[in-house]
């Protein structure tokens, strides 16, 4: 029981990390972007390439930090990946979503994003193959926190939890305390009015995609670090990410953070009561129940 509880939170932390970016994008750009999850995949693979490059160039970079699986090479690769994935997101916007935003409904954008996701996922599998990969094939052992009741925690997952918390706090502060955040929120509330007030819509949209893509890359790398890399990792994650975002309430950064835990805990604790075959359905049942009582998510509000 206690192990399942911790598992749920630690697995949920990855979802939180991914959902924070997604909720911000859905809030400001006003459409459910299904290609967001593919940005996680892009981020993980870009980091994989640079990790290999740096490890080869500077052997000292390939040693692990303490009990984490993270190496200096991977850390630098992740930073690069954040930038490159952010740029990829901006490119997708310039090529496709920008044109649709001007003359189509949000649902057209949703389905265009499905198309973009198909293209991105399959281009990656053409480039890297369909098989799963790892940053390091070594297995990171869990630390025994307590024997009775048995409680095991992996340092990597704990690190992800801290990271998600930091990302959540930072983004929340940016959105609520800085001029940039005010501008972004103004764009999401009322674009014409915001523009009339001198906010550069184009720049704000670019910044949103940059942040969203960067956060996706971060989430992708850490998902890959604690699980595995494969071309379909984004597809496997997308539903859980949307679930986390929507349970939390679209646009609420703390909501997305909590939403990740709700989904993580749901699938972890579910096994205590139902057969594991039903596991994929459980997060959605939790969502159904949550939304029954809170139709706009835990922290969302009707406008």
């Amino acid at each position: 029981m206690i192990q399942s509880l911790f598992d749920g939170i630690l697995v949920g932390a990855i979802l939180s990390l991914g959902a924070i970016g997604l909720t911000m994008m859905m809030h400001i750009l006003r459409f459910a972007n299904f290609s967001h999850a593919e940005l996680l995949t892009v981020g993980a693979y870009v980091a994989l390439v640079f990790d290999a490059v740096f490890s080869a160039l500077v052997p000292a970079f390939a040693t692990k930090w303490g009990s984490l699986s993270l190496t200096a090479a991977l850390a630098v690769a992740t930073l690069l990946s954040i930038a490159i994935t952010g740029a990829t997101a901006v490119a997708a916007d310039r090529l496709i979503f920008k044109r649709l935003r001007e003359n189509a409904g949000p649902l057209t954008m949703v389905f265009a994003s499905f198309g973009v996701a198909l293209v991105m996922r399959n281009v990656i599998s053409l480039l890297f193959g369909l098989q799963t990969m790892h940053y390091s094939n070594d297995i990171a052992f869990a630390m025994v926190i307590s024997l009775d009741p048995l409680l095991l925690i992996k340092p990597d997952q704990f690190f992800v939890l801290i990271l998600a918390l930091t990302a959540m706090a930072a983004l929340h502060l940016v959105m609520t305390r800085t001029p940039l955040g005010f501008a972004l929120r103004a764009i999401s509330e009322n674009p014409p009015l915001a523009q009339a007030n001198g906010i550069n819509l184009k720049r704000m949209v670019t910044i949103t995609w940059m942040i969203g893509g960067g956060l996706a890359a971060l989430a992708g790398v850490f998902y890959a670090l604690t699980n595995q890399i494969s071309p379909i990792m984004g597809r496997d994650l997308v539903l859980s990410l949307f679930a986390a975002t929507i349970v939390g309430g679209i646009g609420s950064v703390p909501g997305a953070f909590i939403g990740g835990f709700v989904v993580g805990l749901a699938s972890s604790l579910a096994l205590l009561v139902i057969p594991s075959g039903y596991n994929p359905a459980l997060p959605f049942m939790i969502i159904l129940i949550t939304l029954y009582f809170r139709p706009f998510g835990l922290f969302g509000e009707e406008r």
Partner: peptide
């Protein structure tokens, strides 16, 4: 049961 396409198998 191990379902396809799950992001994590930790719970199982």
């Amino acid at each position: 049961a191990i379902n396809d396409g799950q992001p994590s198998f930790r719970a199982e």
